[in-house]
């Protein structure tokens, strides 16, 4: 079995950043030599969340905002699977905000690729949690009246061990980020800036292209204070790369029987094993 991934015809708009993200994902998985049946992509609802339909991996295309809980469930059931969450900014930071926060607290070993185009695509152009204050949308006729959410800063304050930002227009850089996130032992957030060619006329490809810059070699991603500065840098200049990284105990390593035992899915089930529990009721 090779590590070649097939791609299927997507229903994305021509020019959508999702194409580049998918290309990067395919390259990352192939370069890591992970076989398609060893990967599960879990997603919610939105254009980004259609990813499992467009690449030949195991897919769990769930409910809007609800990608993280089943991804945790999959990983707990079978620690040997590579679990990747692919979802948009509305899915992850809006509808799924609570799961995002509490998912970070667990530090379970999944890679989370957020396709952040700062707008709602599938529902046609409403503001997302990352749309800038004042931006005119198809719903916010006189401009967005709430502050945008900063996902990287939020993830840092929640104690995430791997926080990164990528750009769909820089595929080699994104491939490297994705590979590092997949390899990272724990929860890895990669917020991927991506233009929506139809609904976001502000944050266009060139808007991003003119602003993003690679974090320099000298940047110390283990320094949390520096990381917070970089996480908050979102204006004329936007840093991309690994903003913060630290080694942390993962959620499943806190369960001895998982850490030192077989994947739960491989445990032989025998009702008689549980009969001893009756003793305390005698």
């Amino acid at each position: 079995m090779t590590c070649k991934y097939e791609l299927y015809e997507p229903a994305w708009c021509p020019g959508c950043g999702n194409y580049m993200i998918r290309t990067a994902l395919k390259m990352a998985l192939e370069e890591l030599e992970i076989k398609p049946h060893e990967v599960v992509i879990v997603s919610g609802i939105g254009q980004a969340a259609k990813m499992p339909h467009y690449i030949s991996v195991n897919g769990f295309n769930g409910l809007h905002g609800r990608a993280i809980p089943p991804a945790i469930g999959v990983k707990m059931a079978n620690k040997e699977l590579h679990v990747i969450v692919e979802s948009g900014d509305g899915d992850t930071y809006g509808e799924g905000g609570n799961h995002f926060i509490h998912g970070i607290r667990r530090n379970i070993d999944i890679a989370h690729f957020v396709h952040n185009n700062q707008i709602y695509g599938l529902t046609k152009g409403q503001a997302s949690p990352t749309t800038a204050m004042g931006q005119i949308t198809t719903l916010q006729f006189d401009g967005v009246k709430v502050e945008p959410l900063n996902p990287l800063a939020l993830a840092l304050t929640m104690g995430a061990g791997f926080v990164a930002r990528g750009f769909s227009g820089d595929i080699p850089h994104l491939v490297a980020l994705m590979k590092e996130a997949i390899k990272y032992k724990g929860y890895a957030l990669v917020d991927i800036l991506q233009p929506c060619v139809v609904w976001n006329r502000v944050n266009t490809f060139s808007w991003y292209k003119n602003r993003v810059y690679h974090l320099p070699e000298s940047y110390d991603y283990t320094n949390k204070e520096e990381a917070m500065k970089k996480a908050l840098e979102f204006g004329d200049r936007i840093p991309i790369g690994v903003i913060y990284k630290e080694e942390k105990e993962t959620y499943l390593d806190r369960f001895d029987f998982i850490k030192n035992g077989p994947p739960l899915v491989d445990v032989e089930l025998n009702p008689l094993d549980a009969e001893k529990l009756l003793e305390e009721f005698r």
């Binding site: 879990v42 809980p69 945790i72 469930g73 999959v74 707990m76 059931a77 799961h99 509490h102 899915v265």
Partner: peptide, 29 residues
């Protein structure tokens, strides 16, 4: 949990509870 090898997760809400359980079941447990 430890004696019987059962993962018990106190989730953030019941929405997460059922979605998580479905993920685990999909993956075979």
């Amino acid at each position: 949990s430890n004696e019987m090898g059962i993962v018990v997760d106190q989730v953030e809400d019941e929405i997460a509870a059922l979605n998580m359980a479905l993920g685990a079941s999909y993956a075979g447990v």
